[in-house]
Write a protein that binds this DNA or RNA. Structure first.
Length: 957
RNA sequence: GCCGGAGUGGUGGAAUUGGUAGACACGCCGGACUCAAAAUCCGGUGGGAGUUGAUCUCGUGUGGGUUCGAGUCCCACCUCCGGCACCA
């Protein structure tokens, strides 16, 4: 083997690593584990093994984390770098249905294929720690964690989860009583009027506790798709209100579903984002999703009824401008508030609203609709009677499902009021900037304030504009929604006039609280997490339903509840949307479905968990994957997770919200209950960019095979016909997929890995171009020829010291490469190695000191060729456990340096000076440079700026 | 509409805190080797001016600004990508 034979080398070393279990991660309790070494937990996002296999875009992140892991090992860390498969879920089940195979069979085939592809990439995972969510040994603990949620409640007084048994004990002692979802202590005025726990029936006990448990059953509006026989996530529903798969109608209707009380953690999920090292963009996405807003709840008494409608507003300072109210069509009090003569209209409106899907409703944001109920409420700040409407621009799911409408200072209310002729009263004075901007955009009425009309160039003055606005706000075509000073906002007890918005808010909230008609409140957009599906391919719930409304957890000792075998795992479709869903598990045998315990007959919960469940905690199972007694041992958990959780978590930005929010939520519950030692799971998170590829469409718009495109003069042709080019994700449908299998067959794994990294920075989207890969291939071949004589196969490495210049290059390369590796800039690391290698091309031999360092630096990036050369250099152990080279300071400094000479900021020449030269010396030398001199002639030097070691700028004029 | 991110040669990209714009690579051009081709090696390669050369000049999406000096900072705008979207 004299030439660079990548297939032989790669096969040899992959076999070697597997046989020697080179990348086994030793942890607490393992023989040979060294607890004195620092640890690094490097994690890839849990992949879903799809039937399509990987394309070259998928491994980018995996190669990146692999390089980080290999580098960390060489820097003396104990590295945990595991991989596994998130294999439950709809796509696998749908694929299984289409192909008529059992989901387990198709899933396992997909896993096997993906495993093969991953292993071909030489990723240094500890495969002994592989987990799969579909294994009962794994989902036993998913079920166990679900039970932790079920058995816990969020105690707002300490802002953490506690065992619900503690609450029950206090209820049984009658220390506390329940007011809906609130725990009321003896000292509270309400206590005496509330029923004691002992007066509750069994069913009431369960219902009452359900309002506290972190996992609970509730009637919630969901996307119900009768044809598919399941509820769907919002992402699975198209804009037309149909299912993405199969294009079946989807209905919005309330259904009894399992929910997880993630909203209890909203504040902590938001706050703790400050303590994690994630990109600001990603944190912002989570913050927006959680959607915290500060405002007030205010109660409006209904005229002629002993009722108060409660609204939530973020602008309590505009209360005096509330000229009508709007309830969501689904609001429970609509019937009661509707007058007899309005009933027909109201019913009709509610019916149409109910038939529109949520997305439908959100789609047309232009035209507001609504009807008057005939009812009136009293504005509590000024006693005015205002009409109550219903409209679908108010959502039942946010706030109280009712709003006070302030048309002058809210865009939606403004549009609605204009359409239905409701009064619009200004209560906040717009700022001058805003007023002038309205003139610029043409929203202000024409001619206002322009003293002499056109020609004079005199624009509308702010004073005139303000007067015009306050006189007639509708003459401006938009609402003023910003902050400003209050106006027309006072009653006998309180005045907001002249107060800036923040102060006005504080003033009115204090007044409302004093009067007992409202209070300040924080709201979140975040909703509780709908956690059940009616499909087969998921984790069964460890829950039994008793005959008297009892909801009983399966004993921990009886876990796992194994997914039963059923004859037909297809979903149970139903054309009638009014029929409740039939979970696939309802087809299980009675022996599975029914359980007798303590003389009672229970029915198993027949829903399954959604796909997110297994991926919410897999990073914990990797720490101790074969433990049958606990989900993770405290020793393993503390060693690998403390102090900041996963040290590096890499994945695509598509999981920015859902997975990362769900996993953080579970982790916090486990933290509160004492099962894990950190409050956040992922201390540092890094989003890798996507790999995009060009796709080509012919005249008909049909995608054509990207591999067969020919380019001529910047135009593209397929079989002679012109085609159009566009950039997009790689995929079969765009006919632009390139598989790692093909690339590796032609160029080898090392070239593939290097090229994927060389394409650009890890966090950026990059465009795949198979053509340019030869550059990397040539690099490895040149490298090989620097080490090995292709004629004889002899090593060209000699024990001699390179000259000073080459030593400097070597150590500067080590210095720079180390820096680049630390910053995940693998593209520039590779560029530096190429430069170092190029410097030796054409020389008769390669000094050992250079060869040694070069191989070490190459090891994390191109592990096979590095191992091979390492061995040829006479080493016996794996280069993957060798030390990363260290740059020697003495070679990083030059005796003589080149200083750039600028005149007035423009480069005019350079001077070579001794490294220690003073500014004066450099300056006088610089003035004499031939190319500099002419630029100084006849000018006076005003100032000289010297950037040490780099540049001298002479300011002369 | 709102919120993020990004625009640098023919191409992917480099320039870490404001300090030589274009490292490295692809492609292209020229040369060496060869009967020839491939591979390899050597040289060139942002635009314009300059007979060659030194050199000059323009140049990091557009237009302004700050600065001795701007790809980098500030303001306005354009384009592309991503997220959210009646959230009161």
């Amino acid at each position: 083997m004299n030439t660079y034979d990548f297939s032989a080398i790669e096969a040899k070393w992959q076999k070697h690593w597997e046989e020697h279990r080179t990348f086994r991660a030793l942890g607490p309790g393992d023989d040979g584990f060294d607890p004195k070494k620092p640890k690094k937990y490097v994690l890839d996002m849990f992949p879903y093994p799809s039937g399509k296999g990987l394309h070259v875009g998928h491994p980018v992140g995996y190669i990146g984390t692999d390089i980080v892991s290999r580098y960390a090992r060489m820097r003396g860390y104990n590295v945990l770098h595991p991989m596994g498969f998130d294999a439950f879920g709809l796509p696998a089940e749908q694929y299984a249905i289409e192909t008529g195979t059992h989901p387990r069979v198709s899933t396992e085939a997909n896993v096997a294929n993906m495993l093969r592809q991953l292993k071909a990439c030489a990723l240094s995972y500890d495969w002994d720690r592989e987990v799969r969510t579909i294994d009962p040994e794994y989902y036993k603990w998913t079920q166990w964690i679900f039970l932790q949620l079920f058995h816990s409640w969020f105690d707002p007084s300490v802002e953490k989860a506690r065992p619900i048994a503690e609450l029950v004990a206090r209820l049984e002692k009658d220390d506390v009583r329940l007011d809906g979802g609130e725990v009321v202590s003896k000292s509270d005025d309400r206590f005496a009027s509330l029923r004691a726990w002992s007066e509750f029936s069994t069913a009431e006990h369960h219902a009452a506790l359900g309002r506290f448990r972190l996992a609970y059953i509730d009637d919630v509006p969901v996307n119900w798709c009768p044809a598919l026989g399941t509820v769907l996530a919002n992402e699975e529903v198209t804009n037309e209100g149909r299912s993405e798969r199969g294009n079946h109608p989807v209905y919005r209707r309330p259904l009894k579903q399992w929910m997880l009380r993630i909203t209890a953690y909203a504040e902590r999920l938001l706050q703790d984002l400050n303590d994690v090292d994630w990109s600001e963009a990603l944190k912002l996405m989570q913050r927006n999703w959680i959607g915290r807003s500060e405002g007030a709840r205010v109660r409006f008494p209904v005229v002629g009824a002993d009722r108060e409608v409660e609204v939530y507003t973020t602008r309590p300072d505009t209360l005096f401008g509330a000229t009508y109210m709007v309830l969501a069509p689904e609001h429970p009090w609509v019937d009661e508030l509707t007058s007899a003569d309005r009933k027909a209209d109201v019913d009709a409106y509610r019916k149409t609203a109910a038939h529109r899907s949520e997305l439908d409703r959100q789609a047309d944001t232009k035209e507001k609709t609504g009807v008057f109920t005939g009812g009136y409420a009293t504005n509590p700040v000024n006693g005015k009677q205002i009409p109550i409407w219903i409209a679908d621009y108010v959502l039942m799911g946010y706030g109280t499902g009712a709003i006070m409408a302030v048309p002058c200072h809210d865009t939606r209310d403004f549009e609605f009021a204009q359409k239905f002729g409701l009064p619009i009263v200004p209560v906040v004075v717009p700022t001058d900037e805003w007023l002038l901007e309205q003139v610029a955009t043409g929203a202000a009425p024409e001619g206002v304030g322009s003293s002499a009309g056109a020609g004079g160039g005199a624009g509308a003055g702010p004073d005139a504009l303000r007067a015009a606005y306050l006189e007639s706000p509708t003459s401006f075509q938009v609402a003023f929604t910003g902050h400003g000073k209050g106006i027309h906002s006072k009653n006998d007890e309180v005045s907001l006039d002249g107060k800036e918005t923040p102060e006005a808010k504080r003033t009115i909230v204090a007044w409302l609280e004093g009067k007992g008609i409202g209070r300040g409140e924080v709201q979140f957009k975040l909703r509780d997490w709908l956690f059940s599906r009616q499909r087969f391919w998921g984790e069964p719930f460890p829950i039994l339903h008793g005959p008297d409304g009892e909801i009983r957890a399966v004993d921990e000792s009886d876990l796992p509840v194994v997914l039963p075998e059923i004859e037909d795992y297809k979903p149970i479709p139903n054309d009638d949307p009014e029929q409740p869903p039939q979970p696939s598990l309802s087809r299980a045998k009675d022996s599975w479905k029914f359980v007798e315990l303590d003389g009672k007959k229970y029915v198993r919960e027949l829903n399954t968990m959604p796909q997110w469940a297994g991926s919410c905690w897999y990073y914990l199972r990797y720490l101790d994957p074969r433990n049958d007694d606990v989900f993770v041992s405290p020793e393993a958990e503390q060693y690998w997770m403390s102090p900041n959780g996963v040290d590096l978590y890499v994945g695509g930005a598509e999981h920015a919200v859902l997975h990362l929010l769900y996993a953080r939520f579970w982790h916090k519950v486990l933290f509160d209950l004492g099962h894990v030692s950190t409050k956040e799971p992922f201390g540092r998170l890094y989003n890798q960019g996507y790999i995009q590829a060009y796709s080509y469409q012919d005249a008909r718009g049909i995608y054509v095979d990207a591999e067969k495109i020919e380019e001529k003069d910047g135009k593209f042709f397929y079989e002679g016909e012109p085609v159009t080019r566009s950039l997009g994700k790689m995929g079969k449908s765009l006919k632009n997929s390139v598989t790692p299998d093909d690339v590796m067959e032609q160029y080898g794994c090392d070239t593939f890995r290097l090229y994927e990294m060389y394409l650009g920075p890890l966090d950026q989207s990059k465009t795949w171009n198979t053509q340019a890969i030869v550059g990397i291939q040539r690099f490895l071949q040149r490298l090989w020829r620097n080490f090995v004589d292709e004629e004889s196969g002899a090593l060209r490495v000699v024990d001699e010291t390179p000259d000073e210049e080459m030593l400097k290059l070597l150590h500067k390369t080590i210095h720079g490469a180390t820096d680049d590796m630390d910053g995940f800039r693998f593209n520039t690391t590779i560029a530096k190695l190429i430069e170092l290698n190029n410097a030796w091309v054409g020389r008769p031999s390669l000094p050992r000191v250079v060869a040694d360092a070069m191989v070490r630096m190459l090891a994390p990036l191109a592990p096979h060729v590095a191992e091979e050369l390492w061995q040829r250099l006479g080493n016996e152990s794996s280069v993957s456990r060798a030390d990363w080279p260290v740059a020697e300071e003495q070679y990083l400094v030059d005796d003589e340096i080149e200083i750039v000479v600028q005149v007035l900021g423009k480069k005019r020449g350079t001077v070579r000076v001794a490294a220690g030269a003073s500014q004066e010396e450099i300056q006088s030398a610089a003035m004499e440079v031939d190319t500099v001199k002419p630029h100084l002639e006849g000018k006076t030097v005003r100032k000289v700026i010297y950037v040490p070691g780099k540049l001298l700028n002479i300011v002369a004029n």
